[in-house]
Amino acid sequence: MTANVLVDPEIVAPERLLAVLDFAGVAVFAATGALAAARLKQDLVTAAFFAAITGVGGGTLRDLLIGAPVFWVTDWRYVAVCVAAAVAVWLIGAREWRFRALLWLDAVGLAAYGVLGAAKAEAWGAPALICVVMGALTACFGGVVRDLLAGQPSILLRREITVSAAILAAGAYVAAKALGLDDWPAAILGAGLGFALRAGALKRGWSLPAFAPRS
């Protein structure tokens, strides 16, 4: 069991089955942070800092809000994963496809962490709606901090579908669990739907309608 999903011993689901998503989500988001630093032509130390902030930022906010132990403080492996992701990006070097990978890695992270955030909030007894909110925060907050540090427009201010994909992933997971699905089927369904929505936005330019004030 990983520290990010560490809960009361009497609570047995969904933390064990979602531990894989936990480290995977941290690694993917950390890679996007390192890639953002690479786009700015920063050094390895800055890339590692970007990776750590992006990888653990959303989960840190979630844990503070639900009153859980901050996961990376009690388990050094999360910071190690972030540093490893930064080193991997650094060693890959300048490749034509590297920066395009940022968007797709972010899509995977949004889906996986949307589910994971909702699952941990559920394990700590949060109501269904709060679980969805925690899923969205877990998936998006690290990216918000990354974009601010990189001087890029925040994902919250982009009309392309990003936060909506995280909400869909978390909401589908919570709804599936409420309908009686087990953890893994619910997680796969939620993450799959969230990723499909984000992928459609990347490939086909989907976006939500903008506010149009009446004249």
Rank of each mutant, 00 (worst) to 15 (best):
G135W: 08
A38R: 13
A199T: 07
D147S: 06
V144N: 06
G151L: 07
P213S: 12
A101W: 11
I53P: 04
V12P: 00
R214Q: 14
A94T: 10
G93Y: 03
Y78F: 15
A166R: 06
R158I: 10
L208P: 10
K41N: 12
L197F: 11
G55P: 09
A118V: 12
E122D: 14
M1K: 06
L61R: 00
V115N: 14
V79K: 04
A178D: 10
L35A: 02
F211H: 13
G192I: 12
L105G: 09
T138S: 06
T46N: 11
A38M: 04
K120Q: 07
A48Y: 03
T162A: 08
L18E: 08
A80K: 00
A112N: 03
R39Y: 06
I167D: 00
L91R: 05
W72P: 00
A111I: 00
G93D: 01
L116R: 06
A94P: 03
I92H: 00
L168R: 06
W72G: 04
M1N: 07
L103M: 05
V5Q: 10
M134R: 00
I92N: 01
L189V: 07
A112T: 11
A172E: 04
A172H: 08
P213R: 14
L61K: 04
A196W: 11
K203H: 13
W97A: 06
A169E: 11
R95F: 04
A30K: 05
A170T: 07
Y78I: 10
P14L: 08
G57C: 07
R158P: 01
C82K: 04
A13C: 01
C140G: 11
A126Q: 15
F71S: 05
M1I: 15
R146M: 05
R62Y: 10
A48H: 01
I66T: 05
A3F: 14
F50H: 05
A199M: 09
V87A: 00
Y113I: 09
A118H: 06
A38H: 09
V115M: 13
K120G: 08
Y78V: 09
L35V: 10
K177S: 08
W104G: 01
A34C: 07
G25Y: 10
S154F: 08
A175M: 15
V174P: 01
E10G: 06
W76L: 10
A107V: 09
A187G: 12
V73H: 10
W184G: 00
F50G: 00
L64T: 12
Q42S: 13
A107P: 07
G109W: 08
L105K: 01
V89L: 00
A30L: 08
E96C: 02
A150M: 07
A201G: 11
A150R: 02
V45S: 11
R100G: 12
L65E: 08
V144A: 01
A85E: 03
R77C: 02
E15F: 03
L157V: 14
L17H: 05
L168I: 09
L17G: 08
W184I: 15
G33D: 08
F49E: 03
P209Y: 13
D22V: 10
F195L: 13
W184D: 00
Y173C: 01
T54E: 04
